[in-house]
Simulated scan of single mutants.
Amino acid sequence: MKLILSIFFSFFLTITAFSQSSFDGIEDKIYQAFGQCFMQSDDDPLMQVISELETAVESEENPWAKYWLANAKIDLSLYYMKSSESDNEAASQTMDEAINILEEIKDKNTEEYALLARALGINISINPSKAMNLSAKVNTNIKKSLKLNDNNLRAYLQSGSSDFYTPEEYGGGKIAESQFLKALSLPDKTIDEAAAPTWGRDEVYYMLVSFYLREENYDQAKIFLNKGLKEFPENQRLASLSSKI
């Protein structure tokens, strides 16, 4: 009996330790794995992280497990979309999995609503025939995110991105600039918890500069490109906009 109890508690402590340690730097871990996928032309780096996060979700030890699992699956879907051997079917399936994870979370917080809006927005490019329905869902989740916390950088990023990608004939292009500028005025972290997200500021710069370039406002594009590169000097995606100014 003592041996059985010893094995049980040993297993329990292993699961608990894993679920806690797996969230030390989880945001950076996903980011690094995303980059490695492109360097290796292989989805294995993200698949490994996803496997760890799925274990954390099953153990129910960390309330952020589902958020980061969905985040990693969104990145995996983007990899399938943008890799040299793009796979739209795999991208669609993986994005659906991310959306389902987030939709099933009860009493979502501001970050979970913002991430769901992001997933739905990206899904428009995967399934353009569903654009109208998906756009409505994007805006609904953005509003819910901001209602819970109107200082969420990522919610304003999604709001601006949604407007940026909406065709002008459907009312797009009216609030993108103001939403991106608002996002830049806000702190990186919305919820004061160790595992809460901080990502997005570099993407705001990328989207804002892209907006100014589209409007042929090259002076503003240059100003915010320089600001962005000062904060994120190693961001190649942002740096790639330099050739367009």
Rank of each mutant, 00 (worst) to 15 (best):
P128G: 13
I122S: 13
Q20R: 04
E169L: 12
Y156H: 04
D75H: 07
N151Y: 12
L120A: 03
T190N: 08
D44F: 15
L157A: 02
L148N: 05
S178N: 13
N133H: 06
T14Q: 07
E215N: 04
I126F: 02
S92G: 07
D75N: 13
E234M: 15
F8M: 15
L120M: 08
F18K: 02
I124Q: 00
F164Y: 12
L148R: 08
P167A: 07
A56T: 10
D150E: 03
L53T: 06
Y205L: 09
N100H: 05
P128L: 10
L186V: 09
G35R: 04
T16Q: 05
Y79N: 05
A136E: 13
C37E: 04
L76A: 14
D163G: 04
S21E: 08
F23M: 04
L181H: 06
A136I: 05
I245L: 14
I15R: 10
L53I: 14
A117S: 08
E61K: 11
S125Y: 10
L238F: 12
E60W: 09
I175V: 02
L46Q: 11
R154I: 00
P63G: 04
L13G: 08
G200V: 02
E97N: 09
K66W: 07
R237W: 12
G160C: 14
L181V: 09
Y205G: 02
L102F: 11
E54L: 11
L53W: 05
A196L: 08
I26R: 01
